[in-house]
Design a protein around this nucleic acid. Structure first.
Length: 584
DNA sequence: TGCGTCTGCTTACCT
DNA sequence: ACAGGTAAGCAGACGCAT
């Protein structure tokens, strides 16, 4: 073993990589290597200066001259896949899966088919690297590194507050402004956020969507919001009562920084149009600047950051709420029909018959309001039709403008967007949306009815019933034993599989009648030997589809009373007990 | 004992 | 360790009727 470990050190030094990655190396390979090196008294010398990697705050690995970047964590952060296993993610992104070796019986596998095990290990490492490249993590981090003026290591491993620190402290230092070392106290009180307009159920025609460009950064700039301008003598009075100095008296460093970033971004976007050969690089830069700008508001609102200030963060959201609600009120007053809005967006029923008229309408509103408010309210898109069942943060629409995305179906919030719904549920809802948005409500009803019936009889592929959710450390739960995801994780561990707190766990419900409902873990690549509770799945499917269809037609007979209809149609009717039964 | 209703907990989503 | 607002599912408590 010492020899293998020495060879590993030499390999790293010989190949001299900038980045070291793998799937869950943070939690598995690195600790294991560290432990074996220690046991065998071999120095873990893979740094560029031959120093050993160090675990920092039980969070990441620091290695001089190289960055250790776990593909698993990056996949979770940027992809939010339904399942997090290497096999699932590589199949999804690369159409290529793991080698077939039984990891739980690795001793025998190594004895009997050594070459296959070697192939398996190499494949695992290669897949992780291919995924790492495919999702362009390095590009993204390098762009952020450039615009935040941070080393790659800090961008990869640090939080977003690191980015703001980098820009803000540099700037404060230059102007001789003192900066706190850390947050003096943990702030627990909450404050109000964005405004969300209620939406009535229905199918709407020609919906024009307007969007504020960088809403929160714009508020900060417009009202000179900063910890350097917050003062009782301030003449700019925010809706929450906070007072800020006029920029003529003193310009805040946060608004100044943001203004600069906004200008830089516009400049980069302009260059992008002129210089096609550098398009991808410039696009990466402008996207990184946007990320950076939006980070400022967030970190000001956290409970522990050095620049945390509730008066400031709530002033930002209060100004934003005031802005959007007063514009909505004005629009309503002038006869425009606002049907929805969330934080920085406004959905308006244009009432126009043709696309050209609707486009003209959108452009006019956008320029009128932008001029009046001294903000940029962009005309973003038109949807025709747009569907809502009457809930906030949930809608589905067919985009008809801009031409680049015309024809696209846009869904927000619904089960089709959620990683914890089973495939059958999302696929069926997606079909229903396709039909509804082609204005075929009758067809949608028929499809839904038939499918719900069929599922109750068990005529459905088991793989379409898998539910997946993340599971935290068991001790963080008030009542861990009553939760399906936790119970699935426990059974996963019993089956000898890996469970790491925070990861997603998959299961199938086998008996929803029990409390808590009985579940069996679904393990990728292994045959599922239990029987799903088809009636449970049928009911959930019905809830999902019914919620949508009912809002368009209150008289959907079969869907009116889910429970009884399901059992009536697909199960033996529970016999009415008559008097004889009591004597049996 | 059974059923409906409400509340709390939890996750994932939207902006 | 970036924010608050929101929908939805499940468990458990509670009250009411049987």
């Amino acid at each position: 073993e010492p020899e293998i470990l020495e060879d590993f050190n030499k390999l790293v030094q010989r190949e001299d990589p900038d980045i070291i990655t793998g799937y869950n190396i943070d939690g598995y390979d690195m600790p294991l290597l560290e432990e074996r090196m220690k046991f065998n008294k071999v120095r873990f010398s893979i740094g560029r200066d031959y120093i050993s990697p160090r675990r920092i705050m039980d969070q990441y690995w620091r290695l001089h001259g190289r960055v250790i970047d776990d593909t698993w964590w990056e996949v979770r952060k940027v992809l939010h896949p339904k399942h997090e296993t290497l096999n699932y993610v590589s199949n999804m992104l690369l159409n290529e899966g793991k080698e077939d070796v039984n990891r739980l019986d690795i001793e025998n596998e190594w004895k009997n088919r050594r070459d296959d095990v070697i192939k398996y290990c190499i494949k695992d490492a290669r897949l992780a690297l291919l995924i790492y490249r495919k999702i362009r993590i390095l590009d993204r981090n390098l762009y952020l590194s450039t615009v935040s003026m941070l080393p790659l290591d800090d961008v990869t491993n640090g939080g977003t507050s690191t980015y703001v620190d980098s820009l803000l402290i540099r700037r404060a230092d230059r102007e001789n402004i003192g900066v706190p070392m850390s947050s003096s106290k943990f702030s627990n009180d909450t404050y109000a956020g964005g405004y969300v307009h209620t939406m009535d159920p229905g199918l709407y025609d020609m919906i024009v969507v307007l969007d504020f460009k960088s809403m929160y950064p714009s508020m900060i700039i417009k009202y000179n919001i900063c910890f350097t301008t917050l003062s009782p003598e301030g003449t700019i009075v925010a809706p929450n009562g906070a007072r800020f100095l006029d920029p003529g008296v003193k310009k805040g460093i946060i608004p100044d920084l943001l203004e600069q970033l906004m200008k830089n971004r516009d400049e980069v976007k302009k260059q992008m149009k002129e210089d096609k050969s550098n398009h991808d690089y410039l696009d990466g830069l402008q996207a990184a600047i946007k990320v950076l700008m939006n980070t400022f508001y967030g970190v000001l609102g956290t409970s522990f950051y050095r620049f945390t200030n509730r008066e400031i963060s709530s002033a930002i959201t209060a100004y934003a709420r005031n802005t959007i609600t007063s514009i909505i009120a004005d629009l309503d007053k002038s006869g425009n029909k606002v049907i929805y809005g969330d934080t920085d967006s406004i959905f308006i029923e244009s009432g126009k018959k043709t696309l050209d008229e609707a486009i003209e309408y959108g452009n006019r509103l956008s320029s009128d309001i932008s001029r009046k408010e001294n903000l940029v309210l962009e005309f973003e898109k038109i949807m025709d039709p747009l569907f809502s069942h009457g809930a906030k943060k949930r809608y589905a629409g067919k985009i008809v403008y801009p031409p680049s995305s015309a024809g696209e179906i846009l869904v927000r919030g619904y089960e089709t967007r959620r990683t914890d719904s089973f495939d059958l549920q999302s696929e069926a809802l997606s079909t229903v949306f396709d039909l509804i948005l082609s204005r075929d409500v009758e067809g949608a009803k028929q499809y839904a009815e038939d499918l719900v019936k069929e599922v109750a009889t068990g005529k459905i592929d088991t793989s379409k019933l898998v539910i997946s959710r993340s599971v935290k450390n068991f001790s963080t739960y008030k009542n861990a034993g009553s939760m399906a995801n936790v119970n699935a994780a426990k059974k996963l561990i019993d089956a000898g599989e890996t469970f790491i707190p925070g990861m997603k766990v998959s299961w199938i419900v086998t008996d929803a009648g029990k409390t808590p409902q009985a579940v069996e873990p679904f393990i990728d690549g292994r045959k599922f030997t239990h029987t799903p509770d088809y009636v449970y799945y049928s009911k959930r499917l019905q809830e999902t589809l019914n919620r949508v269809l009912e809002s368009l037609d209150k008289e959907i007979a079969v869907f009116k009373n889910p429970q009884s209809k399901i059992t009536d149609a697909f199960e033996e009717k529970p016999k009415k007990r008559d008097i004889e039964d009591f004597f049996k």
